[in-house]
Structure formats: structure tokens, C-alpha cells
Design a protein around this nucleic acid. Structure first.
Lengths: 199, 199
DNA sequence: GTCTATAGGAAGATAGAC
DNA sequence: GTCTATCTTCCTATAGAC
């Protein structure tokens, strides 16, 4: 008599893995540790997942999707179209300062995927999704403002993503919120300067 | 009769470790693999280093120092003070596209240090050195131009560092050189806009 | 499906002959 | 100092009883 359906076990293991990786890092998330975190016997792991790598792939996909959803929500929440950009950046940054471990896990998983033969496509997709989400948000913003961007949207999206990604990592290391927020403000204003006057 | 002084062994092992990590990643750089790469018996490792961690600490310090030196050289090489910034960014980027593995190792080591209890200070120092180097370069640039920055130098340095760091990681994943160079150009121009008119 | 027990290997580090 | 052989621990994955 199963206490839990196999499908639910999978979910529980994924959740446990994410929790564990956020706390101790991807390297420490062994099959044993994950099963332990989910309070299941080790043997369970391998009839829910074919291998540790399969679980990690699932985690990468989940986390990337979550991040994209969070970004869209932050964006949709803004009323005043003029401050849409600024507000989204602030909401994103609040998330970073509140849950830096999750961001760190994202980096670790990307590197893991890049180093694992055959898993590079997953890392590529992870980044492609982020970039695409930002592109959509930028296009949406221009549309709502009834204007256009004066630089190619894919380039602007890459710019935004790079600043946020680099700034996040920098803050995770030195926790300098004051300077980080200044950079965020500065980059936000720069981005706004690429909005053409409404025709 | 030693074929090599212990001090030289240390250097050889460090070099082998860096080579190996660039090729296969930090996780694959086990004591066995490093000794093998240096064509030494495993036993050698532990009378050159007290532990694997001690070697990694040494590697982190070396790589950070190298990066800073490279940045200064790129900067010093420019003649025309007006294009100093732009040129430095380009030189940096050439390095990234030529040796992306080294950059990736830098990220991996930073994350390793952050996750290893007691090693966070090393990661902090690594980032602090980068930031400080950029601050010095910015100050030097303003001095040569006979002008000032219209924003705090530490903030500008963090901005530059973040863009470069984030953009590098993004390029390592998707190898989109065209868009990356556009972002670099765009960020460079933005940076130049913070130069006050010479008094 | 479920869990215990274990296979089989690789990791960091050390003991001890030379 | 030098190197071989080995200790101990921890890993992923599986075999096999229930």
C-alpha cells in the first residue's frame, strides 16, 4: 500500500532537491541527501528517476520556468506605464535580496549543464527562455506606451539580462545593497533612454 | 634524488589544475586527475598541499591576480585617451571570446568558495579585487582626460563589472557574438556619458 | 510498488617502505 | 623527499525479498 503515488513522489523529490540545493549547493545534492531531505529511503529515488542527472534536468527546467513566470507577474503588476520598467527592475531585485540562494542555484545548474556532455542544450534553452521573456516584456512595454525602441529589442534584452545577472552575482558575493541599487537605477534610466518619443 | 624541487612541484600541480579545470570543469579536478595531468603519482599531491582545498585556494588567488593584471595591461596599451574606455572593453572581450573556459572556471571557483564553509572570504576578496581594479582604471582615465566622473566611481565600477560578467556568461552559453558586441558598445557609450566636460 | 541490503567504483587522505 | 599500496568514506545504481 503506497503512502504516496509515484507521481507525487517525483514532485516531492524535486521539491526536496531544490530546497537542499538552495541550502547547501548543487554539489551537495547527492541522491542520498535528496532522498533524506524528502524523508524517503534511498531506493525510492531510482524508480522515480532513471538517474541523478534526470532529476537535475527536471529541476533546471522547473526553475527556469518559475523565473520567467515571476518576471511576467512583476511586469503585469505595474499600472503606470511610464514606471513599468523601473518597477519591474525593483520587483526583480527584491526577489534577489530575499532569495539569493535560488539565484545561486541557477548559476550552479547552468555551469553543471555546460560541463556535462550532452547537457549544453539545456543550459542554452535556460538562457534563451530568459532572453525571450525579457524581449516580450520590452515589446509589450513599447506597445503599451504607444512607441518603439530605438535599438534592436534582442540587444536591449541581452543588455538587461547581463546587467541583472552580473549584478546579482556581485551582490551575492559582497552584499553591497546600496551600490547595487544605484547600478540598477542607472541601468534602468539608460534603458528608458531607448524609448522613442510617441509619434 | 628528486627530479624536481617541492616548490616546482607545487607550481606544476597548480598549472595542471588550471589546465584541467579549464578543460573539464572544477568538479572533475580531483586530486587524482590533477596529479595525473601533471604526470605525477597521486602521493605527491599531499606533500605539496595539505588538501585539495588548499590547492583550490591557491588557484583562485592566482587566477584573480592574473585577470587584474590583464585588465591593467589592456588599459595601459591605449594611446588616445578618448578611446581608452572603448579599447579596454574590446581587449577584454577579445580575451573572453578567445579563452571562455578560463572565465567559466572563474565562475565555478567563486561558487565553490561561496558554498565551502569558511571560504566565502576568498570569493569576496576575488570580487573586491576586480572591482577595485576597475575603480582604479576609471579614476586613471578621468585623470588622463583632465576631468571627473559625474557618478560615484565605485558605482560605475560595479556597473561595468556587472555588465561584463553577465554578458560573458551569456555569451559562453549562447555564443551570440554579434548581439554581445552590440551590448558592449552600448554599455561603453553609456559609461562615456558619465564623463564631465573638462573644466 | 516499496524498501533493505549491497554491489562496484571513485573520492580524499595516509602509512610505511625506500 | 618519493612513491606504492591501502584505509575509509561516500557516491550512483541495482538486486531481490516482500
Amino acid at each position: 500500500m503506497p503512502r504516496m503515488a509515484a507521481k507525487d513522489r517525483r514532485e516531492a523529490l524535486i521539491a526536496a532537491a531544490i530546497r537542499l540545493m538552495a541550502r547547501d549547493g548543487v554539489a551537495k545534492a547527492t541522491t542520498r541527501a535528496i532522498a533524506g531531505e524528502a524523508q524517503m529511503p534511498l531506493g525510492v529515488f531510482h524508480y522515480c528517476f532513471a538517474s541523478r542527472e534526470e532529476l537535475l534536468q527536471e529541476v533546471i527546467t522547473r526553475l527556469a520556468a518559475e523565473s520567467v513566470v515571476a518576471a511576467r507577474q512583476a511586469f503585469a503588476g505595474a499600472e503606470d506605464p511610464a514606471s513599468m520598467i523601473t518597477k519591474s527592475l525593483q520587483v526583480f531585485w527584491q526577489g534577489v535580496e530575499l532569495h539569493p540562494e535560488e539565484q545561486l542555484v541557477g548559476y550552479e545548474l547552468a555551469h553543471y549543464a555546460l560541463r556535462q556532455p550532452g547537457m549544453e542544450p539545456l543550459a542554452r534553452r535556460q538562457y534563451a527562455e530568459y532572453l525571450e521573456a525579457i524581449e516580450e516584456l520590452l515589446s509589450e512595454a513599447a506597445k503599451r506606451l504607444g512607441t518603439e525602441w530605438t535599438a534592436p529589442v534582442p540587444v536591449l534584452a541581452r543588455y538587461v539580462h547581463s546587467v541583472l545577472d552580473g549584478l546579482t552575482m556581485c551582490w551575492i558575493v559582497d552584499r553591497n545593497s546600496e551600490h547595487s541599487r544605484e547600478v540598477l537605477r542607472l541601468a534602468g534610466e539608460h534603458l528608458l533612454s531607448f524609448i522613442a518619443e510617441p509619434s
